[in-house]
Design a protein around this nucleic acid. Sequence first.
DNA 1: GTCGTCGATGTGGTCAGACCACAGAATACA
DNA 2: TGTATTCTGTGGTCTGACCACATCGACGAC
Lengths: 256, 256
Amino acid sequence: MQATPPQATPSPATSAPRAWQSVLTHIEGRLLAGDLAPGDRLPPERLLATDLGVGRSSVRGALRVLEVLGLIRTGTGSGPASGAIVIARPSGGMATLMRLQVAGGGFAVADVVATRLVLEAAVVTELAADEPDQAADLAPAAELLDAMDLDLTEAEFLALDAAFHLALAEASGNSVITAMMSGLRNSVERYALAGAAFLPSWSETSTRLRAEHRGILAAVENRDAPLARTLVRDHISGYYAEMTPPPLTTAPTTRN
Amino acid sequence: MQATPPQATPSPATSAPRAWQSVLTHIEGRLLAGDLAPGDRLPPERLLATDLGVGRSSVRGALRVLEVLGLIRTGTGSGPASGAIVIARPSGGMATLMRLQVAGGGFAVADVVATRLVLEAAVVTELAADEPDQAADLAPAAELLDAMDLDLTEAEFLALDAAFHLALAEASGNSVITAMMSGLRNSVERYALAGAAFLPSWSETSTRLRAEHRGILAAVENRDAPLARTLVRDHISGYYAEMTPPPLTTAPTTRN
DNA sequence: GTCGTCGATGTGGTCAGACCACAGAATACA
DNA sequence: TGTATTCTGTGGTCTGACCACATCGACGAC
């Protein structure tokens, strides 16, 4: 039915006129044009395939990419939850990207930690700089701190720890930084967890972390940006410095 | 051959035991174990499919994801450049993710610019803090500035502009920040280009930008971190402020 | 009339097989 | 010896067929 030799894809711009990329371009164009927005449903795969003149497998390839990148969510069956639905949730995609890049050596763990430091400092600076009358909502973060006071396993504690930092990022209102923080934290989660086993005393460390969290939140609430920055830096770099000995095997070989 | 009813995938950990995800997990495991490193070639798709007990289409799905995320590069034909080769280049994946998230409304353009500001400031701070005797290599960035002195179209100028900022990030040595900067810049490139057409005077603006670049580089070379930070902030926010009127239609609807 | 059951329908998920294009290697031939 | 041809192995794509699943609607029991 469709182009066997001529390959009618109208976008051989760069170098690889692959079928699934043309589907991706098409959907991106519809997003850009506002024709597709979060909450909308994409056409069924089979319809999209015939409409665009490609095979269903190519459409599926594009949808899979969109799914991994957090752009859509797919569901089987029928009804409102079925089909491919635009969601535009970057966190998952960012986490996958970073996790795999760390696994593949594209990102050194030390760089991930350093970047987290930069972003985290920016977040608390931003939060502390807010006008008090229109302050960001720090309640979710505070609630997480309360939850961390309970008796928890290391994994549970670290999960809440991550959620706390993420809550701060969310409160700052920058979706890009929030997604990045989520991905960064996620990508080194296994290292944080593996390193926890090598700490001299988990109870001491967790007590210290709890206090540091309280301190950071208090500094933000008191609009003391420099203090908040300092505390955040010490908090993060301190934890990773304490547990670095065992893992952290970086492999910055960037051959082709 | 493989499991029709029992679905022998050994990793139904979370919620979605999809075939291509199991392939992805398998490859991620091999990366983590050091069994696969940049430069290595993955097994052929057909072999991988039979080995893992899934269809070739599922293998292809995983490989496509890895390709989009910048983990592998695929090539047809035979010879050393064929097959799927691990490369671990995060820039492309980051750019795709951010571009699509901006298109889908997951990222507001303003947040992208704000994040770029944060990272760019961190980069120059880091560069300025280096010990003079082991200073980062700023030569590539300087060369780009020389190239920008020529008579260029707006698109050419902006491309070199992006390359200059990227060169700074690379000089800082943080691969994560470099990839993020690349992606951020890339995702708003169309806005930067579209906005350039609305500037009162391109020649004036480009002259100013050139001077600002020189200033930033000089501040870094003089180890004046505060100055470099200030200049970078003014440089970026100034440009976007000057051209914001027309585009920048954010759509922060985060339903579903 | 109401409610439960059970098929019809439409969706994504997967598999299998068949081609094609491509690039290098092996072979045949001049 | 050198060139042309064929072979082989790779990813890229299409097609068709299933399956699992979730909803909807018709039908019959009560």
